[in-house]
Design a protein around this nucleic acid. Structure first.
Lengths: 334, 334
DNA sequence: CTGAAAGCGCTTACAG
DNA sequence: CTGAAAGCGCTTACAG
């Protein structure tokens, strides 16, 4: 389709506007240098001819690029989608073009996504890395390109990283339930080898020891599955019937745990408190209310952008940016 | 960063491999035409030099492009995210590069997204249109570019469109509960002016009349809000206490309705059946089970790809492709 | 398979 | 502001 029509170039625009090709190019790049009259004529010509700026040609000639790759490991996670959307908006506002790519938690797809984006001359890569991303690979990319990681830290990598303060998240969540006088508390997380999970567990343990409480247990269930969390909780409860509080790694796990607690049909005087360390946008609409730690995706997007900007300007950004998190308190006794 | 290093070109590769520039270009484009020995030498040189194919240059010279824009109105909807991921995978497998862009249900963002992607020389646009997309605008784009719409139909537009059989979805869902002998049935949808909602309602009405039942009511609640659905249901129930079945437009609304039913504390012999016409991936993990209509995103992605392929080959694809849907039966009495 | 040549649409100095 | 010129990295015939 677009092959049939001969494309309109700046030469055509220049002819029509009665100015030189250079002037058109000047308007298209740094528009403040062109006088009012020429500007009007050029804009009119562009409109009449339906001229479309060719960024491929511009990028090739100038060796610049305003394309930023956003590589997301799990786009079906509403938090990640929200973050990607927010990032895209932030980049757009600075004249940059976001290109979101989904790797579906697949390492090969992540590798090929970065390779492809290089061929498209991306100026920077914002990566939410898949779980088993290798630090060596990341450092190789980072040495030659502008790369930052998001939401997840790749251990021992030198690439700048922006992530929520997971340790604070679990700490504040745990403190919240401990303040209510519970004493038999468990943590239910997932993928405990990930740096995120380790940070969550660490915040949990710190809070427990600050209250001089030995946590009952800390257990992992399979990846983001409410059903798995439900079963995990039921097993834990069987072995620890004195359990009266559960700190969950995120809202999905919390949902599973809450479902499990409902299924126990506990007497009215026996409650088990549940709190989540990681709010997921669309899960807030659930029947039951839940105290949860909210991660501000706009703030993460903003911080990420600042780091990317520093990279683009060849200054050295902080290697790690922790973004604050906030506990949203709701009725969390089940 | 990438500006400092002088880039490696096919000329460098050709020199190193001891072949001509043309041969390298040949390998990079249609590789079957290059002999085994040359191929090995070239691949070795590419590897040693860290050569990166420059798609901007290639696209500019050849006037071809393998970039496909995927423009999604709501990336935080897990179904849309799943669809985008699936589409990206399908495109990748055919050597095309997907560029996902989120418009966040904002018409201006959608317009500028398409404009930007044109500047990047996208070969086609796959659009999940925002609600108030104008048919005229879409037809203008479609006249000059390869454009298809997904999941939502823009009324009176000539652009090819791929979407689930919403009418069948609500029909099969409604028939399912009617077969259980209910007689007082309501439909709860959202945004009833959208073509999707109209199709859902039409399927519902058809099923009711096939059972010679006059539905109690059909009501809209605000956009995808479980809480709003909950309140809407409670109001409806107050006015129609004989209600014993509810057909919901999607899982989120169904969740709200189920929560409302729970809050009624109905006697054990009184149940209200709930069914959903539109399954949303991450909502399947809910405490309660729910019969719901599953939309196969892989199938939609595949069909969309076929339509795009036809457009790229300048043949005329079907203007409308309806993808089959399936009722997933679970215990749906609440 | 090679090699020289033209050209895709732009940017970037530069002299006027 | 103009205008001519060079060049970004590739593809595409074409004659050998």
């Amino acid at each position: 389709m677009q092959n049939t029509a001969k494309s309109v170039t700046i030469i055509d625009v220049a002819k029509r506007a009665g100015v030189s090709k250079s002037t058109v190019s000047l308007l298209l790049t740094k528009s403040e240098k062109v006088g009012y009259k020429s500007r009007q004529k050029i804009l009119k010509a562009i409109d009449e001819l339906g001229y479309v700026y060719n960024r491929d040609a511009a990028a090739m000639r100038s060796k610049r690029s305003n394309l930023i790759g956003i590589i997301i490991n799990d786009l079906t996670n509403p938090l990640m989608a929200e973050l990607a959307t927010s990032l895209e908006k932030t980049l757009n506002e600075s004249g940059l073009q976001a290109m979101i790519v989904s790797t579906n938690n697949n390492l090969e797809l992540q590798t090929s996504a970065v390779k492809n984006l290089k061929e498209y001359n991306a100026a920077a890569f914002i990566i939410c890395p898949v779980a088993n991303t290798c630090a060596k690979w990341l450092d190789t990319q980072s040495a030659k390109h502008n790369v930052i990681t998001l939401m997840r830290e790749v251990p021992f990598s030198a690439a700048p990283c922006v992530l929520p303060d997971y340790k604070k998240a679990s700490h504040v969540a745990t403190m919240h339930v401990l303040a209510q006088g519970v004493s038999n508390i468990a943590f239910i997380g997932c993928e405990l080898t990930m740096s995120e999970s380790l940070a969550l567990q660490s915040g949990f343990n710190t809070a427990c020891s600050q209250h001089s409480i030995t946590p009952l247990t800390a257990i992992a269930c399979s990846h983001n599955q409410a059903l798995s969390a439900k079963n995990t909780f039921l097993n834990t409860y069987k072995q620890n019937p004195q359990l009266n509080a559960v700190v969950c790694a995120n809202d999905i796990i919390a949902q599973g745990v809450i479902a499990a607690i409902h299924s126990l049909n506990l007497p009215a005087n026996q409650t088990i408190k549940v709190v989540s360390c990681h709010h997921l946008p669309n899960y807030s609409v659930m029947p039951c209310s839940l105290s949860t730690v909210v991660i501000n995706t706009d703030e993460i997007a903003k911080r990420s952008f600042l780091v990317v900007q520093e990279l683009l300007q060849n200054t050295t950004p902080p290697v790690k940016t922790l973004v604050n998190v906030n506990l949203q308190i709701r009725d969390s006794s089940q």
